[in-house]
Design a protein around this nucleic acid. Sequence first.
DNA 1: CCCCGCTGTCACCAATCGGTGAGTAGCCGG
DNA 2: CCGGCTACTCACCGATTGGTGACAGCGGGG
Lengths: 219, 219
Amino acid sequence: MLIEAVKLENSPEAGAEPERRVRDRGATERAILAAAKSLLAQEGFQNFGINAVARRAGCDKQLIYRYYGGLDGLVEAIGTDLGTWVRDRIPEDAGGMFLLTYGDLMERLALLLLDALKNDPLMRRILAWEISDNTEQVRRLSEARSKALALWLERMRGSLAPPKGVDAAAVNAIVIAAIQHLVLAGAAGGQCAGLSLKTPKDWEKAALALKRIVRGVYG
Amino acid sequence: MLIEAVKLENSPEAGAEPERRVRDRGATERAILAAAKSLLAQEGFQNFGINAVARRAGCDKQLIYRYYGGLDGLVEAIGTDLGTWVRDRIPEDAGGMFLLTYGDLMERLALLLLDALKNDPLMRRILAWEISDNTEQVRRLSEARSKALALWLERMRGSLAPPKGVDAAAVNAIVIAAIQHLVLAGAAGGQCAGLSLKTPKDWEKAALALKRIVRGVYG
DNA sequence: CCCCGCTGTCACCAATCGGTGAGTAGCCGG
DNA sequence: CCGGCTACTCACCGATTGGTGACAGCGGGG
């Protein structure tokens, strides 16, 4: 995840550097996409709009219409870009090779997902967006995110089969739901259902409880 | 003349029904509050503003400033009003009197909360708002909601003590987080982490998995 | 060379937003 | 009957939004 220093609309030409903008469509397109991502990650979807993105990218909004066909196309591009999320989040030591039981696997997966989301503001904002809005625009983005997550889970799971007698799909969905809501609530208000989620110690307690829950179902 | 034609595009349901408005400040205040609640419940927080509330209430926005001191005060009034949520959601057959174990209690609580949230659009919108916004305005509303939930849980719990050796506060917070996210995701996109949440059958599966999870930790 | 196309900029549009000052309309006590 | 209080409406403000048409400047191919 690149966090590029974005030039805010402060004093233009204050220094001796007029920053001659080169005519490079590719670079501009990338700048727009990067601006959109960082804007969404930092400000959330509420103030995410054509004007704001153009302002942050340092170019005219007309270019967003031209290159991406408007906000919808830009959002779609963000979704496509989200595919790289998976690549960056797969630990080197492969998936569940060394994990013997399904419980081992799911426990590790849960903790990894918790940590990944905790450190990924963009993903969090998208998640919040999905929950708060139901437009076509967001539905596509949601689908891309969902697909990325599913792929990630699959890669991590390897070829380990879930135990019989338990609806693993439903249980896992609930565990994931818990993780997502925990992270969202923690990032937004610092707590969830009375449980403080501010300090690393708080998160350790939450992680421990999460482990207990996963172990409770999968042994 | 007074406006009797409230221009809203749908919703024949109970909410703001200002018929034959007389000069009655109390009634107007109530109409505004009702309009605000129904607007928030139906449209979400994204289009929740002074103009929209006034439009739905069928009065001038100036009155909102006068009677509630602006949107903040109105939101606060919604929060206060949320206290009634608890009263309406406590089943007649009292709390955990007939429940022998903590597991019995938590299982029942989880299912009741799941159902309550599923059928309460206003609460869902507030929940989504909390997660997506971090302004003072929403933080107060969040606190009111949180307090209502805590009170509800306490009333339901009765005097049953949680088992030792497990961080019940953390575990319960996670279970609640799962329920909340499940309901939010279901209402918004009809699914969560690949699990479909549309038909009653879908929800039954989710509820069953939820029961397994609660039983897994609390026995 | 000139001209055309691509890149980028700017000005302008209607709509809506939150917010306010001023004015109208009905009721009630004297 | 009237003065004043209160409930209520209206007109307007500046700012910002998404969106579009016109134009400037550079560069490469004829």
